[in-house]
Amino acid sequence: MRKVPDNRAWWLVLPVLLLVAFSALVPLMTVVNYSVQDIFGPGNAYYVGTEWFRDVLRDERLQASLLRQFGFSAAVLAIEIPLGIGIALMMPKGGIRASLCLILLAIPLLIPWNVVGTIWQIFARGDIGLFGWGLNQLGFNYNYTGDPVDAWLTVLLMDVWHWTPLVALLCYSGLRAIPEAFYQAAEIDRASRWAVFRYIQLPRLKNVLVIAVLLRFMDSFMIYTEPFVLTGGGPGSSTTFLSQTLTTMAVGQFDLGRAAAFSLVYFLIVLLVSWLFFTAITHMDKER
């Protein structure tokens, strides 16, 4: 069969192009458009060039917020990934007990985010919340509404409770996909528990871990609802993360140009870090 080049075939791409344009390109370009203008009202906007960007990058409040955000995401990853792997390793391999574990693990994932915030807001209260009251009874001076460290730890604990199950479920599915023959061979080769983990389980978890790390990084980096409900960003601004700063700027102060510039910087950071993670993990054991 002879192939005839026919450029009309490009029309077939049009539906996809339109869909992508409306779902991604147009909204994104709108933001780009806003980011280079100072907007006072409808029909009352002035071109300002890169001024907003320079302004945003120099803003100390934003820098502090960005730093907190990186700290939070780093802590989330450092706790949830190892913990999730650990839980997956300890789960039963099959039968009714495995099903029960899976259901228990899935529960936090099914709760709406603002409800999670509310649950922890009450749970951690010193007067009526079991967690807060319990800590105070044990002699800790715990008060998440007044103490920045307590507030920070509470937000972190809430995120660990909410999202570690996702990591655990992903790892569990990865572990179940390892053929029994590998464990048999390792047993014959007298591998220690650690060697089995290091040389059999971990390499074969790589793909799910890429997904887990990326999802947890992106989600934690964009966290908004839960700390907003739990602490409202306080005390002071100790738990005010990037998205909350952004929302205050865009919706609260109606500072659209600045907020748009900030959004773009935010977006680029997420993209860059995700790319770094992805590249680092997928190149980890390439042939030298």
């Binding site: 061979a185 591998a191 220690s192 390499p203």
Partner: peptide, 25 residues
């Protein structure tokens, strides 16, 4: 020692490390 019908290799390791694995253990 047992050799299985379908080969099991530790694929993140080199051939040398594969062969050395039972000895290191």
């Amino acid at each position: 020692a047992q050799v299985f019908q379908f080969p099991v290799v530790y694929d993140s390791m080199t051939v040398f490390d594969n062969l050395a694995f039972p000895l290191r253990n």
